[in-house]
Design a binder for these strands. Structure first.
Length: 424
RNA sequence: GUGGGCGUAGCUCAGUUGGUUAGAGCGCCUGGUUGUGGUCCAGGAGGCCGGGGGUUCGAAUCCCCUCGUUCACCCCA
């Protein structure tokens, strides 16, 4: 095949009509549910000062090797980066605008990570998410978890599991880190080379290894849940009983950690069993009580989640749920008299709120009917010599068994409306 | 960044001891006389076999490089 001169950059892709409509519908479902729960949308920049993202953790992969960064044309130039996630930017916005807490916001948009692409993993991908800033109450955790859970449910997904853990608070973390570090050091001979490197930088993340060779060591490692301070343990207990009360099934996942360093206390992940293991994380989040302060704002507890739109759609495919929206075009105008009538008829229908389309190029009736069928339109409105002479139009049912009939041209909108209640 | 698979018409793919004008299905276009789609029938358009180099009398078919894609690791959504 002759290569085109250009193609979408590695790890990016074009989302074409049928798929794009489905995607927008999915975001609309999320937006609706978030707004019903009192969240307002924030649209923030797609790039920020690199420093904003460095607060995610100086030795996380996202910061050290996956950032799309660049300098602007200022003097001196500013070091900027495309956002690899949205939480940091939202916290930056909170510190900048100081809204009255609790600040409950939702967002949607593309994120960028310079990674090796594979199925369900792109260099540009879309997330929807929420954040709650300024609420320490464990009921906020429950509310957020319930929103995520119900979103998956509302799409029709049945094979999503909620994995839950607590990473403890600043009071309880050090003792655990010490115990974990000591244990892993003692067993380092049994770890893979890669995990020994990870151990140097962040022992916690060794628990996240999927390598065979690490599993026996990980299985016997001390667990954070056994080291929680009184406050952290109580917070976690309230969160769990709240989920129980709402009938939300969750799995305790005591070795669950997250790839970004800012998390504290409650953390969670949504795993889609319909997807292969490497990409089954369709959402995740947790508390990050210190992040706003790290960015120069007031001490502010926070929590939230981000859900991967691309992967959720893959999971919907795998489960055969959430089909795209029906075609917006209700009437396809077939005009074999030159196209002038199609022009005015479409205009009239559209102004009445009825989706209408037609073909171009003065094709034969047979060809136009074919296009009408393919368009997914429910009805064909046919204009030929006879109709023009009589001042009429033929309305034909393309989907049901209502056949066809001729009606006065000026009754078109009314006649069409009778087929389907309401505009569209 | 590391390792494996794959790369032939718009799509899904055939095409082995390397040898005449490279195939199928789907899709698309045009027809099947007297205005009508979804089924059926017949024609047709559309590929320098991802790109570059090499081996050979001759390569889609062998070798190298490169790009893309895919899977796993890493990490995450």
């Amino acid at each position: 095949m002759a290569e085109p001169d250009f193609r979408a950059p590695k790890g990016t892709r074009d989302i074409l009509p049928a798929e794009s409509g489905r995607r927008r519908a999915l975001v609309d479902v999320f937006a609706r549910r978030a707004e019903l729960a009192g969240f307002g949308e924030v649209v923030s920049p797609m790039f920020e000062d690199l420093g904003v993202f460095k607060r995610l953790g100086e030795d996380t992969d996202v910061v050290t090797k996956e950032m799309f960064d660049f300098f602007d044309k200022g003097d001196p130039p500013q070091h900027l980066a495309l956002r690899p996630e949205l939480t940091a930017g939202i916290c930056r916005a909170y510190a900048e605008h100081r809204p009255v807490p609790p600040w409950k916001i939702w967002y949607e948009g593309p994120q960028f990570r310079y990674e090796q692409p594979q199925a369900g993993r792109y260099r540009q991908f879309t997330q929807v998410g929420v954040e709650v800033l300024g609420a320490d109450d464990p009921q906020a955790d429950i509310d957020v978890l319930a929103l995520g859970w119900s979103f998956y449910e509302s799409l029709g997904l049945g094979q999503v599991r909620l994995l839950l853990n607590s990473l403890g608070d600043p009071g309880s973390r050090p003792a655990y880190m010490e115990a974990l570090g000591a244990y892993l050091e003692a067993r380092s001979g049994d770890l893979t080379d890669q995990s020994r490197v990870t151990l140097e930088r962040n022992p916690l993340r060794v628990l996240d290894s999927k390598r065979e060779g690490d599993q026996t060591v990980i299985a016997d490692a001390p667990l954070m849940v056994d080291f929680l301070s009184g406050d952290a343990a109580e917070h976690f207990r309230v969160v769990r009983s709240g989920l129980d009360g709402l009938g939300i099934a969750y799995e305790m996942s005591p070795r669950l950690v997250r790839g970004l360093d800012y998390y504290t206390r409650t953390i969670f992940e949504f795993a889609a069993d319909a997807l292969p293991g490497a990409q089954n994380a369709v959402g995740g989040g947790g508390r990050y009580d210190g992040l706003v302060e790290d960015l120069g704002g007031p001490p502010t507890p926070g929590l939230g989640f981000a859900l991967g739109v691309d992967r959720i759609l893959l999971a919907c495919d795998a489960e055969g749920v959430f089909p795209g929206p029906p075609p917006a075009v209700l009437v396809f105008v077939v005009d074999v008299t030159g196209g002038g009538s199609a022009l005015s008829m479409c205009q009239k229908l559209r102004e009445a709120g009825i989706g209408a389309d037609r073909s171009y190029g003065g094709r034969s009736m047979k060809a136009q009917m074919k296009v009408a069928d393919r368009s997914g339109a429910r009805l064909a409105a046919i204009i030929g010599e006879d109709e023009v002479a009589a001042g009429e139009v033929t309305i034909r049912d393309l989907r049901g068994d209502a056949g066809q009939r001729r009606v006065p041209l000026d009754m078109l909108v009314q006649e069409v409306s009778e087929f389907v209640p309401g505009p569209n």
